[in-house]
Amino acid sequence: MNDLLVMAQIAGRRCAFHAHDVSSVIEVGAITPVPRAPDFIAGITAMRSQALTVIECRRAIGFDPGRWALDHRAVVVTVADYSYALRVDAIEDITSAIGEPGHVPGGFGPEWSRVAAGMIETQAGPALLIDLPTLIAGREPFGAAA
């Protein structure tokens, strides 16, 4: 398996998305907030004539986004026919994976283990491979923002 990966920093950690899940990387324009939606949904924004749901990844995983920088770009992914823009600390690079995603004994910590599809070795070093559907589903209601 020699997959291309989009590398990004989320909450200070290096994470990876499968490149085939990523449709583009966009500059984030105006975001329309969505009142009464879960807090990890930053709002909706327009990409061409499509409406994207903007996900604040740090909050979706369970961290306070105020502690990290915010990239002005966002990763656009499509999950179950809906498009999402993922806001992260920084979008780094595209690189290729070395080997299969694997697990680390002891897991990645409670927040990370929930959204992780495993650890993957890349050209740029190890990264946490993000499982998009769980990331986008957000935390269960009981998880308060850290």
Partner: peptide, 8 residues
């Protein structure tokens, strides 16, 4: 809209 928003 995405399901997470529709849920509201």
């Amino acid at each position: 809209l995405a399901p997470a928003i529709m849920k509201s």
